[in-house]
Design a protein around this nucleic acid. Structure first.
Lengths: 296, 296
DNA sequence: TATTGATTATATCAATATGATATGGAGAAA
DNA sequence: TTTCTCCATATCATATTGATATAATCAATA
């Protein structure tokens, strides 16, 4: 038995409207075709499905049995089509992103805001990760893609795209304001206390390496857990910190954050998007990726 | 959007087997057609559904969503086909019959037994009705058809078929044994007490009419509720009764039931099948009807 | 690195099914 | 009766599907 499911669809509408003509209209087809289809279906199933009259058609006992199942089956199919359509038009769907804090602040946040305005139906879940954690989440399939900062160990089956470069700057609080008057060398700077992220972060490694290249040991006097905490510490004169330029607003100076000028150039870092190569992104995730990429 | 449901069927099997080739085998089709169908489906839905590789194909996020719904939908369709097939081959199904007691004993019982042996999967429900009750049940759609005895008021939209004629005979117990020695006239018989069904039955009406035709009033001295109860009453000499010939076995005489010979011929009655004309019978009911009809 | 094997993609043509139109026929309503 | 509204039938152009041959791809293996 190998009956065309399209025949069942015709059956479904005929049963639903109790009319060949109405079913034809609904199917954007014509009545003779519906008649033919039902006739074929009855032949294939080996039993009559409808009692015809010129007023309306009614189901036979066998037709009733068939309709009971077919109708629920088709509810599911219609629901599937709706759902897919919603996703395609980005009226629904969901995206899961693994983002490092800096990436979040420097790039992701404004674009997520924009995306949300354009497609309010798409659910977005951002999990705040360190770069290695984000890579693990990506590998485990927990996130659609990761937005993190270099350096990054791109895993097997992962593909990295640079979204934006960013420059970190050294900042200090009111007590050290005099330091802003001239360009400092790293050696001079290193006499002062530092506020920085913990030693398990890539950021820590970068600064250690950069300082070492200039013959200096980088030892933060105050370690903080998240990048967000650096500016408050700096503001309260607990030390000098390095933050992405974007963390500073125009009004930072008025609120007690002062930018330091260095002789040595702080290495440029990048915000990157990393996605797996095995599965394509969902439509929603693909759209967001495109928005992120086009703002380079 | 008007996508062929047959395309979804192909999708279903590809997703299920994660293989175009296997899906083609299962569908008794060939791989190039499956490839083409999926390609078309993807085009119609506007999104990729599978990630192809030469090892196996996997669903995209959108494909997963679609499959979640399509798979349950198709379970229902497959179940529908199975169920219908079972009914068609009489491996399942159900029949509801409204039968009067006499019809049951004289005709229905042995055929039901045979039907049950042939098609043990079909559920049979017999509701014991008087003829008018059976007609009401038929009109209310509670039974597929009724098997009753004449006379019967066939309702609008009902069609009657005579299945078998039967003859009732007068019987008595040991005390009246002497009556069996000669042919009795109805007048002679009427001097003795009668055992009969209640006045609300057609049987009662028939005998009233028959007696009246011969100028005698029919007044059962003992009214019983069911025909089954007549013989025990007769046996215990509570009176003379009329029962269908078939009620008497060869051994009846040995057990104290004696057949009386009458000069007047008791009217012949019929066991009839009455069915509605609006809806055709189910396959199972149709089969049983045919068996009943062919044993006339 | 080259070969093999298993799998999907493409091309093509005949067979089949479908869509469309015209028309017939049957039963209910007026 | 007539009319109106259905369903049934016939027919033909078109679209879809089934089938076959063959190419391209990629992983496993020698």
């Amino acid at each position: 038995m190998n009956i065309s499911y399209d025949h069942y669809r015709v059956f479904y509408y005929v049963a639903k409207f109790q009319s060949f003509t109405r079913a034809a209209e609904c199917l954007m087809n014509n009545q003779p075709n519906v008649t033919r289809t039902i006739k074929n279906l009855e032949g294939e199933l080996g039993c009559k499905l409808f009692v015809r009259s010129n007023r309306k058609v009614t189901l036979t006992p066998e037709g009733e049995r068939l309709y009971a199942h077919i109708s629920v089956a088709f509810q599911h199919i219609l629901e599937a089509e709706n759902e897919l359509m919603m996703e395609k038009t980005l009226q629904s769907g969901s995206i899961s992103i693994g983002a490092s804090e800096v990436a979040l602040h420097c790039l992701l946040l404004p674009i997520l805001k924009k995306f949300r305005e354009l497609y309010p139906g798409v659910r977005i879940r951002v999990s705040n990760h360190s770069t290695p954690q984000a890579m693990k989440a990506l590998k485990d399939g927990l996130v659609d893609f990761a937005v993190i900062t270099t350096p990054v160990d791109v895993p097997e089956n992962g593909k990295m795209t640079v979204l934006k470069e960013f420059q970190e700057v050294a900042v200090c609080g009111a007590v050290y304001k005099e330091l802003t008057e001239k360009k400092l060398s790293l050696a001079e700077l290193s006499k002062y206390p530092f506020v920085g992220l913990g030693s398990h972060t890539k950021t820590y490694e970068i600064y250690t390496e950069w300082f070492a290249k200039h013959g200096i040991t980088f030892t933060p006097d105050i370690e903080v857990a998240t990048a967000d905490q650096i500016l408050p510490m700096v503001k309260n004169d607990l030390g000098i910190g390095f933050v992405p330029e974007e963390f500073l607003t125009d009004e930072s100076e008025k609120t007690g954050i002062y930018r330091l000028r260095l002789k040595e150039k702080i290495p440029v870092r990048s915000v990157c998007l990393v996605k797996g190569t095995e599965q394509p992104l969902s439509i929603a995730a693909g759209k967001l990726e495109k928005m992120l990429g086009s703002l380079k």
